[in-house]
């Protein structure tokens, strides 16, 4: 916890040993990565039992090998995802990390940074400061993460949590919401991983902190 305060408070002093990603962020990030991959791969297998669209996922990329196995994975990994996500949200708010790192997000900033990124002129000098596109994507994916958990809960408990189910327009519509959130997370994941590979020091910062 102390490493967080140190790193974020001194974000603008650029010493070589500066902590870019504090320990708690790294631990929660990689735990989330594992949980997300388990949820997505088992979720694809569950989807295959009753597809919403005119396609199914290849069994080479699904987890659980049949519906029953996939459900066991999904309802086990959900605890990891939810507990980890909850800790992340609480710490993100009380440490002020969300406010400091993700705000403000302005349309003008997003457009100019998006242009700079597409023309390969975006600076990666200070990894502790997010550009506007990063802010938008990171804030957006947190919201998507919350919606995918809530829509999942509403499908798991459409009677006990009928109010949550009703919020999504009923069980049937919640399935589409849940699927859409998954698609957004997968799209995010593709861009996120591609950019981390393009800027290797950002990947290093998420592993060793510096």
């Amino acid at each position: 916890m102390s490493s967080l305060a140190v790193s974020d408070d001194h974000a603008d002093t650029s010493t070589p040993a500066k902590v870019i990603q504090p320990t708690w962020v790294r631990v929660l990030h990689w735990t989330n990565a594992v949980a997300m991959v388990l949820m997505i791969m088992s979720g694809w297998q569950i989807y295959n039992a009753s597809p919403l669209f005119n396609f199914t996922f290849s069994s080479s990329i699904t987890l659980g090998s049949w519906l029953g196995g996939a459900l066991l994975w999904h309802f086990a990994a959900m605890w990891l995802l939810m507990v980890n996500g909850l800790i992340y949200l609480v710490l993100g708010f009380i440490t002020g990390r969300f406010r400091r790192k993700l705000l403000p997000i302005t349309p003008g900033g997003v457009i100019s940074d998006a242009k700079a990124a597409l023309t390969l002129k975006l600076s990666h000098g200070d990894l502790s400061k997010y550009n506007s596109v990063q802010k938008l994507l990171y804030a957006g994916i947190i919201v998507v993460g919350i919606v995918i958990v809530l829509s999942g809960l509403s499908m798991w408990k459409p009677v006990q949590l009928y109010w949550l189910s009703a919020l999504f327009g009923g069980y049937d519509i919640a399935r589409y919401v849940h699927f859409t959130c998954m698609a957004l997370i997968v799209a995010f994941l593709v861009i996120h991983v591609a950019l981390a590979v393009l800027v290797p020091k950002s990947l290093r910062a998420m592993i060793i902190g510096r």
Binding site: L63, G69, L72
Partner: peptide
């Protein structure tokens, strides 16, 4: 009998993930 029925884990990726888990 369908051999996949009672076998939940087939891919190597899933085993690696569980080790982490």
């Amino acid at each position: 009998p369908d051999p996949t029925r009672r076998r939940f884990i087939t891919t190597g990726a899933s085993l690696g993930a569980l080790t982490l888990l």
